[in-house]
Amino acid sequence: MPDLRELYQDVILEHSKAPRNYRELGAANRRAEGFNPLCGDRYTVYVDLDGDAIRDIAFQGSGCAISKASASLMTQSVKGKTQAEVEELFGEFHKIVTGEAPASNGKVPAVGKLSVFAGVSAYPVRVKCATLAWHTLRAALAGEHESVSTE
């Protein structure tokens, strides 16, 4: 039986209770909305894109502890990154939450704190929660105005 503490790590609980960069971003030139129709999670991700790099990022919305903490940690880890770097990071993150890569083995050093989401891999229905903010960010970067859905 997977241990609940593996899923609800302190870092995750802490970020879900006090999410970072949780605000509307006035200077945003990209934004996208993402929702998970299964559980009603809904987030808006705001990006201030400076050329190819993320100068600033913020988010707002509501959802479960996993989705909110993931959004919070994501905003911290992608600030200053280029779009290509975000893609690479997302690829690593996705492998971690689906259990395809051991958390410690991230080739991208920036994965750092994101490895706290390794516990998600034992709960397949929660993978969508962990990746919702990321899909939303990618939609914002791609300049898609449509909202994204995990279904």
């Binding site: 999670d41 479960c64 709960y123």
Partner: peptide, 14 residues
């Protein structure tokens, strides 16, 4: 308060 239903569902499932 402060706990999303989805998290309640996962913990109860355990």
């Amino acid at each position: 308060d402060g706990i999303h239903p989805h998290d309640i569902g996962t913990i109860l499932d355990q």
